[in-house]
């Protein structure tokens, strides 16, 4: 593996860790899959469909999200939002993230 390939692989692993937190935070407001992806991309977090959509499904299976199918503009869409359990988990993860960020900043500096 070349140096660039190593870097890309590690970058991907780093992003994977923050992806769940980003998705949970974004779903404090209701979104359907595509609008969620667009919103995250507009804030600088590009995620490909193959990663995001299975992730949302997994979070729903873990009862962190609720969803419902609705028809909009003659098309059926699945809307997701944080569940009560999801809100609790988000709060704890956010605190954990802030702690980790402080620790890491200390180590790097």
């Amino acid at each position: 593996m070349t140096e660039i390939e190593h870097y890309q692989k590690l970058k991907l692993e780093l992003r994977r860790g923050v992806l769940i937190l980003a998705v949970l935070a974004e779903l404090r407001e209701e979104h359907y899959g595509y609008s969620l992806r667009k919103n995250l991309a507009s804030q600088g977090l590009e995620i490909d469909e193959g990663t995001l959509y299975p992730l949302i499904r997994r979070l729903e299976k873990q009862n962190l999200l609720t969803s419902e199918w609705r028809e909009e503009n003659k098309r059926k869409k699945r809307f997701y939002q944080l569940s009560d359990v999801g809100k609790e988990v988000l709060e704890k993860l956010t605190a954990e993230w802030q702690q980790t960020q402080t620790t890491l900043n200390n180590i790097i500096s």
């Binding site: 899959g33 959509y53 499904r57 869409k77």
Partner: peptide, 16 residues
């Protein structure tokens, strides 16, 4: 379910 979801997402992106 998964097919319906991906179908909806793909057509949404294509329309965009």
């Amino acid at each position: 379910e998964v097919r319906a979801e991906l179908e909806s997402l793909i057509y949404e992106e294509l329309e965009d």
